[in-house]
Design a protein around this nucleic acid. Structure first.
Lengths: 344, 344
DNA sequence: CTGTTAGCGCCTTCAC
DNA sequence: GTGAAGGCGCTAACAG
């Protein structure tokens, strides 16, 4: 039984393999990459030695030498604990892995400074592309990355101040449809619960809500609108406040699942039969024991589309062509939403 | 308005900065890293030039030259869509980011081949450490990584066939406690629903369930044990089968949240008042309208502990010392669980 | 204080 | 079919 491993002062290098066979590093390199001009006999000996040593080419040296990126895709999200983003991440990964890329996930916690630092760092690490869910409309760091030649794709929020591919949910349309359904069921006073105004999706969904009211000739009443809740706890309080108004709303529309869950708890506690609708489907929504209308969409698919958009831009980089991204106008893809009814 | 960027044939290099100032690359390198032995005046000119060019050191070249790793930590999980793993990932990230590391997440989908490939690739990319939730007891690829000098920490499953730090949940104790509670409430026939036998946690939790039965002099009856369900849909069917037995169990214990949710749906559909207990807390467990006992634990904390264990091993690497991991015996940390009661 | 040399691990180019 | 140089971008180590 031969010594299975070198004494672990770092993984074996190409030269370790070469020396073991009594051949030059160059030949080893070629043999391991199936270069035809190498004697089949020596090739086998080299492969055997590499296997024994557990040799793997150093990807760091490789990408430096090849002048390409690292085969990594940076994914910048605001909160990985939110199932929406973990599904997105999985969708991205499932697509780009086919092209030999891996995903580096960075979590920003909605903090713009973290996001800036993270993006700069990803560029410095020579990722081949970036998929980002930007925290705000200040996207100069993303624009800078794009200017450095790193393809950038935005997910769930559109680019601001520069051009980039993006994949969006039909926030406006989905919110409009859900609100409209409440209206056609006879509701006239509909409350709105949503994320802070700075969040793009929240604002679009508020616009959809408002548009539905307008389309049916109903007034937009600020007293029924509560923005700024990020957690169910806050949403629950905000919902309770609406329910305590002299003329409480007979229905609530929530712009994301955090708010929907908070509102659900408030409704349960109040005992009223206020109707509930919200953006985002979520597990167990059907098991809550009260009717609920949700705007559903496929966040895996969102990730897959983002991954494909990026993969397109990354193709053909590095061979020659000064490793610029594939040219072409920025694309904007909007994914559909659907209404689902639970517990009716 | 000066040209804000070079013509984007790749980011600017150190020499671009140096030439622009009329100084050697070495001086520029020093200036940008706050090396004291450089004239403050020139240092400022260099910094200015770097800023103008948007220069960022190439981390790829850097890590090659320094002989260290890349400042990346590889995180290998089986299913990022499971909140357990996304929380784990966040916990890991929150800790190691303080030491200047970033997280590369790889998803294996419980597939051993993917896991092998992923681990080998992470090593080839010269990550500074790996945190893994291994899919099975075949962990030779992880042992190989450790032998190559890459610190490895296991989360949620113990090392098999080699030595490594690990952080575990008290699977046995938690399952025992939950099952015992059902027994003290008078249940004598308790069904078990769990993941495939190959999954370590599932097996430990089954052991805990069996131990509770034994401790109370109750028989272990295979007809009441259903292993192999991964998704709520399958779990629901398995639970329905148990409920349809001639002598159905009066309570069910489920070894993870997928099975608990499936069992919940089966119970709801059947209309029986079968008691329900399960491993893993989950959102909305309190809103399901029936009493439920859950074994709760903190998966963020699990990630943080794993991150700290790894950070310890990575410290001091690369300076000299042949970049071996910090020595010391393998540590095994078991995190506590607690029982929570909902909807009583 | 600043510059020159050399090399991390690999691969393209050009010799033999 | 194989090997010897040279360099990707950066920085220790040693000059000056």
């Amino acid at each position: 039984m031969p010594e299975p491993r070198p004494p672990a002062d770092g993984p074996p290098t190409l030269r370790d393999v070469a020396e073991r066979v009594g051949v030059s590093a160059m030949t080893a390199s070629r043999a391991l990459r199936d270069d035809s001009r190498v004697l089949p006999a020596t090739r086998e000996r080299i492969r055997a030695a590499a296997a024994e040593l557990g040799y793997r080419p150093n990807e760091v040296a490789r990408s430096l030498r090849l002048g390409r990126g690292t085969g990594l895709v940076g994914l910048v999200v605001t909160n990985l604990a939110n199932p929406f983003y973990s599904r997105l991440a999985l969708g991205v990964d499932s697509v780009i892995v086919d092209d030999g890329f891996k995903t580096v996930i960075g979590n920003t916690g909605q903090d713009l400074d973290s996001e800036r630092e993270l993006v700069a760092d990803l560029v410095a690490r020579r990722v081949d592309g970036i998929i980002a869910v930007p925290a705000s409309a200040d996207q100069r760091h993303l624009a800078a990355a794009a200017a450095d030649g790193v393809p950038v794709v935005l997910a769930s929020r559109p680019p601001e101040g520069f051009d980039a591919d993006c994949v969006l949910v039909d926030d406006f349309g989905g919110a409009l449809a859900a609100t409209a359904r409440l209206i056609t069921r006879g509701h006239r006073r509909i409350g709105f619960l949503g994320s802070p105004p700075a969040v793009y999706t929240g604002t679009e969904r508020l616009r959809g809500y408002a548009a539905a009211l307008a389309a049916h000739g109903l007034p937009y009443d600020e007293r029924y609108v509560r923005q700024g809740q990020t957690e169910p706890r806050e949403a629950r309080r905000a919902a309770a406040e609406l329910l305590a108004l002299p003329e409480p709303p007979s229905a609530l529309f929530c712009s994301n699942n955090r708010n929907t869950i908070g509102a659900f708890r408030a409704l349960r506690a109040s005992g009223t039969d206020t109707a509930l609708a919200g953006f985002d489907d979520f597990e167990l929504a059907d098991a809550l024991g009260l009717p609920i209308t949700l705007v559903a969409y496929d966040s895996d698919e969102l990730g897959r589309v983002a991954g494909r958009l990026l993969a397109d831009r990354m193709r053909g980089r590095g061979s020659d062509s000064g490793k610029k991204p594939e040219p072409g106008p920025a694309r904007r893809i909007v994914t559909r939403t659907s209404l689902v009814e639970y517990g009716s």
